[in-house]
Design a protein around this nucleic acid. Structure first.
Lengths: 154, 154
DNA sequence: CGCATGTACTTGCAAACGCAACGATTGCAG
DNA sequence: CTGCAATCGTTGCGTTTGCAAGTACATGCG
């Protein structure tokens, strides 16, 4: 499992290391969430994003902004939302003042699934970070991630 | 372009910020490389990885390790290599001592294309980093990336 | 009011991906 | 040397993605 062989990190080491770290963590999360809750990594983060967007009544992000938040094309976002809506985890509703805009709410079922999946997600994240910390080139980013994560908990 | 609205970064801010930053940079690189040299982001990094793996005669990474370096499944790696091989940018050759293993070399055409694309890539990377630095939550990672990148140049 | 311009989301289509099943090669045990 | 388990790479198949075109709504100008 030692990575070392590939020290082709020399071109743009920072970016390459970031990319590598992201890929490894994401793969790990994907497996954990998929196997445990039939959720893809992106589906999880969509739920997470939308659930945090609590307001007076419901969500406030348009498809547009959602796409930006999960870094996906608009079309992919449409279908991602559609998938979760079909599973009863989300609900769309039109913006009253501008009927082009579409807001999205997390249903109770969606919230419940999210709560169930969160421990899995967090555990997998910690595992992946711990594994990555072994690689000296990834370590600075690992440290930064853990530092910022801790800010949330404490 | 102000992102601020989505402060759903509260769940696992570090990981979420890393993910966001990676996505933005990657999108930017993808567009630049695709539009300018018919290369995807991953194709570029494959060339980069393989070209740095110069040795006595040729490459030394097996498909296995390549997959690990670009964080892709083995099957996807097979096809990625096949695509670039069909374009004459890479060449496969079997490992003499273990005929299960397959090594990959970058052809002169591949190297040339890489040299052409590198400025595009680097410029796009700088642009993306600069844009991301505006977001306070992404800024620490941007700083880390730039720090490590600088280590390569200087 | 009526039409042009622009924005927000959705759909058609081809490319790329991951998982699981497969064929090929090696290494070891009997 | 024959057979079995493990490793490496490739292919079948269904899913996800991005780009470009299409539709619906909004806004501004004549």
């Amino acid at each position: 499992m030692t990575v070392g062989t590939t020290d082709a990190l020399r071109a743009a080491p920072g970016w390459y290391a970031l990319s590598l770290l992201h890929g490894r963590i994401d793969s790990h999360l994907e497996r954990a969430l998929q196997g445990g809750h039939d959720l893809s990594s992106r589906e999880y983060s969509l739920l997470e994003v939308l659930s945090h967007q609590h307001d007076g009544e419901g969500g406030h992000l348009r498809m547009n902004q959602v796409a930006d938040a999960v870094v996906l094309s608009q079309s992919a976002t449409t279908r991602l939302v559609t998938r979760l809506e079909d599973r009863g985890l989300l609900a769309r509703y039109l913006c009253p003042t501008d009927r082009r805009g579409i807001y999205t709410n997390v249903t109770p079922a969606g919230l419940e699934l999210l709560e169930q999946a969160r421990p899995t997600h967090d555990a997998a994240l910690r595992e992946a970070l711990a594994a990555a910390a072994a690689d000296p080139r990834l370590e600075p980013f690992v440290a930064a991630v853990e530092h910022l994560n801790r800010a949330a908990v404490g």
